[in-house]
């Protein structure tokens, strides 16, 4: 399995549409224990990515991801801007000047993004954040890919794991972000960041085969 710039752009575009389409849902989830700004911040940041889509640098995967990161940090406020900006920047640094990545490089890129989120948020798995969905999902993706699984299967597995992991944040006590002020009262609610990650994986997995089919037909014309 390899990933082209087109594949990376598809994933980013899908994530952006998920953020824009679910502004209300993510805002409602955040309002339960946070302050309700999560959906709005995510939507405004990724809306800016879609608005500037055609102007993004497409010379390399690293350049593309850094362009996305810059756009996100220019518009996305709250906790989300630094978190997603850092993740995209770190991923871009690993991807560098390549226009196609080997499987191991794709995984290294995802783990670098996760490490960036850990450092920026001073948080880890178990704190009731997006990491609680993202880390298990990338672990599942890695397991499938290293076993020789196809990208489509690996993404489907990651989407299932991410959804289960997001659901598993309900009984957790929030330790980061404004939800942490709620302490024990945060128990019983879904973490909005984890829910967003799960929804992104679901949407990517659902449309991946369509994307691959389109890429193949483009390659043959």
């Amino acid at each position: 399995m390899t990933a082209t710039l087109g594949d990376v752009a598809f994933v980013i575009g899908s994530m952006a549409r998920t953020a824009v389409d679910n502004e209300g849902l993510f805002g409602e989830l955040d309002a339960v224990v946070g302050d309700g700004d999560f959906g709005y911040s995510m939507a405004r940041g990724f809306e800016a990515v879609l608005a500037g889509w055609s102007e993004l640098d497409r010379a390399s995967i690293g350049g593309f991801l850094k362009g996305v990161a810059t756009t996100v940090m220019g518009r996305m406020g709250g906790t989300s801007g630094p978190i997603w900006g850092t993740a995209l920047l770190r991923a871009g640094t690993v991807a560098g000047n390549e226009s196609e990545l080997e499987c191991a490089e794709v995984l290294a890129m995802l783990w670098a993004a996760i490490e960036g989120i850990r450092q920026r948020g001073k948080s880890d798995v178990g704190d009731k954040t997006l990491l609680d969905a993202l880390v298990p999902a990338v672990n599942a993706l890695e397991g499938e890919l290293l076993n020789g699984g196809a990208a489509a299967d690996a993404l489907s597995r990651a989407a299932v794991v991410a959804s289960e992991a997001a659901e598993a944040t309900r009984p957790m006590v929030a330790k980061r972000g404004r939800a942490s002020y709620a302490g024990d009262r945060s128990v019983g609610t879904l973490d909005p960041g984890a829910a967003a990650v799960a929804r992104m994986f679901q949407d990517i997995a659902a449309s991946w085969s369509e994307h691959v089919g389109r890429s193949d037909s483009e390659a043959h014309t």
Binding site: G45, M73, G74, G77
Partner: peptide, 12 residues
């Protein structure tokens, strides 16, 4: 300031 109840983007 950022948006309502939201920290400013890093760029600001």
């Amino acid at each position: 300031p950022g948006d309502v109840f939201s920290a400013p983007p890093v760029d600001y």
